[in-house]
Structures are given as C-alpha cells and as structure tokens.
Simulated scan of single mutants.
Amino acid sequence: MSELEHISTSRCYAGEQQVWRHESAATGTPMTFAIYIPDHEEGAKLPVLWWLSGLTCTHENAMIKCEYKRAAAEHGMIVVCPDTSPRGEGVPDHEDYDFGQGAGFYVDATQDPWAKHFQIRSYIEDELPALIAKSFPVDMDRQGISGHSMGGHGALTVSLRNPGRFHSTSAFAPIVSPLNCPWGDKALTGYLGEDRQAWREYDSVALIEDGARLDEVLVDQGTADEWLDGELKTHLFEEACRDAGMNATIRMQEGYDHSYFFVSTFVSDHIAWHAERLKA
C-alpha cells in the first residue's frame, strides 16, 4: 500500500476538506484525491460517498464547485473525489478535451499507448477504496456513489458491475450509453479497440440489458443541457430501467444546463437521499 502525501487541509463547515496524493500501482503515476471528513466522535466510522467527476476535471472541480460540504457535514458523510485520469511526465495525452488526460472514462484501457497508465477502473474499484479504508474513518459497509457527466457514467457502471457494494447510486447528467454517442465511440475505440462487445461492461444501458441490476437509482438531468440529445441520451437509460423493472427516479429539471450550477442546485438533495440509504 502506497504512503499518502498530505497536500492541504481547510476547515469548512463542521469538517475538513483535505487533499492527498499517493503513488498508484494501478496507473503507475502519482494520483491526487480530495476527501471531505465531517467532525465526528473519536473511533466513529462514517458512511462514504464516492464522487466521480466529468470530462476535463481533476479532483478539484467538485471540491470547489459542487457545494456538497454543508450537506455532507449535516449528514455526517465522508465524500471522496478522485482524479479522472493519470497525469504527469510520460503519460500519453490528446489534443482533444474528450480523450486522454482528464478523460479516463473509468475504464481499464487495453490499447497502446493508453494501457500502461489508463487503468482507471482498477484504481476506482480496487486500489483507492483499499487505501481509503486503511487511512480514513470510513464505514465500508455504508458506501454510496455518484458523479456528473462522464463521472455519472462511471458511477452507474461501477455500481452495476459491483452488486451489493453500494447501497445508494445516483448521477447528474450521466453519459448513459457510450455505445450510442460520439464521446463514447471515440473514447472506447481509443482505449479498448474496435470490438464493441468489449465495451458493454462500460455502458450502463448494456449492463442492464445483460442482467445487471440496482435496487434503485436517482438521476437528475437538465432539460436545457446542450449535450442531452447528442451525447447523454437519458431516455435510453430510462427505457432500459423500465424494461428491466428496475426502480429508477429520473428527474428532468426544467431549464438547467450541464454545468456545476445545475449540480450544485441539487447536490444537497442527493446527499440527503444517499444519507437515508446509508444509515447505520
């Protein structure tokens, strides 16, 4: 297990917003994450919400813009915000914002030159949770997961692939089906190759079609989101849940766009929703 390097701690509401870095075995690079820890009694273990961010984001975007900290403090919930990709010297990148650094798509890449470092699925599903469990006061029997855009895609697919691990799953404006949108087609071709069958484990709609289930899920999507029709295609997820008989609350929020202004408006709702399902 790699050692943690403390980057910063800032007092915020009734808790601390911390940032840490460590050497990742999964990515072969340093990885940075933010973690918000509410005040708590000594020895207490708190529920944890994993927040996965979107294209171009680092650990900082949600930490600064999401406005989750007041609600997290109120409900006694730890929030972990990982980075979205490996970074640094020797890590491949691309000139486009939707591929390469900042656009890991929460997959384990199999294609060169990405495979060496872009093992984000393994980092998010295995390495980082083990590190967090060892180093912070989290109750790993009370985990929830959420995210925005590419991170919403990550939250849905990670939860669907790991039945029983997460007791609550939500998403904001998720990319629900990379198999059926330009962002996904570009990213998954580049990271995984041309075999679209291999993409299905990274597509929430395909996972549901193939038998994966969640007890329930909450999704918020803005009706004024410029990416709704071409990239996000919320209706595909809604149809897949309906056909599978899966309990999904999908809220189309009138007039809201794709930005963190939208996310910050409803994040307290999501924190409360997760908290209700993560009670001891």
Score class of each variant (00 low, 15 high):
Pro92Asn: 05
Trp183Thr: 00
Ser53Trp: 02
Cys81Leu: 14
Gly90Cys: 10
Ser85Glu: 09
Ser85Cys: 10
Thr169Cys: 15
Ala248Met: 02
Gln253Phe: 01
Trp20Leu: 10
Trp183Ser: 00
Ala198Arg: 11
Arg70Asn: 07
Val267Tyr: 14
Met252Val: 00
Ser264Val: 06
Asp269His: 13
Leu4Trp: 02
Ile208Gly: 06
Thr9Asp: 09
Pro113Cys: 13
Phe237Val: 04
Leu214Trp: 01
Ala198Ser: 15
Val138Lys: 02
Gly76Phe: 08
Trp227Cys: 09
Glu5Asp: 04
Leu52His: 11
Ala115Ser: 12
Thr56Val: 08
Gln101Glu: 12
Thr84Gln: 14
Glu231Asp: 09
Ala62Asn: 06
Gly104Asp: 03
Val267Trp: 12
Leu218Lys: 02
Leu218Ile: 01
Gly154Asp: 13
Thr29Arg: 11
Ala115Trp: 01
Glu3Gly: 06
Trp227Leu: 15
Trp20Val: 10
Ala272Thr: 09
Met31Leu: 15
Arg21Tyr: 01
Leu160Phe: 08
Tyr97Thr: 00
Val80Trp: 03
Asp243Ser: 12
Gly211Ser: 05
Gln119Ser: 14
Asp126Ser: 13
Gly102Phe: 04
Thr110Asn: 04
Arg121Lys: 13
Pro163Thr: 04
His6Asp: 00
Pro38Tyr: 01
Gly230Lys: 06
Ile37His: 02
Pro30Phe: 07
Met31Glu: 10
Ile124Glu: 10
Arg11His: 10
Ala71Asp: 04
Ile145Asp: 08
Gly222Pro: 03
Ser53Leu: 03
Gly245Arg: 01
Glu254Val: 14
Arg200Gly: 07
Gly147Met: 11
Leu52Pro: 04
Thr32Val: 15
Gly211Asn: 05
Lys134Arg: 13
Thr58Asn: 12
Met31Gln: 13
Asp225Pro: 02
His148Cys: 08
Ser268Thr: 10
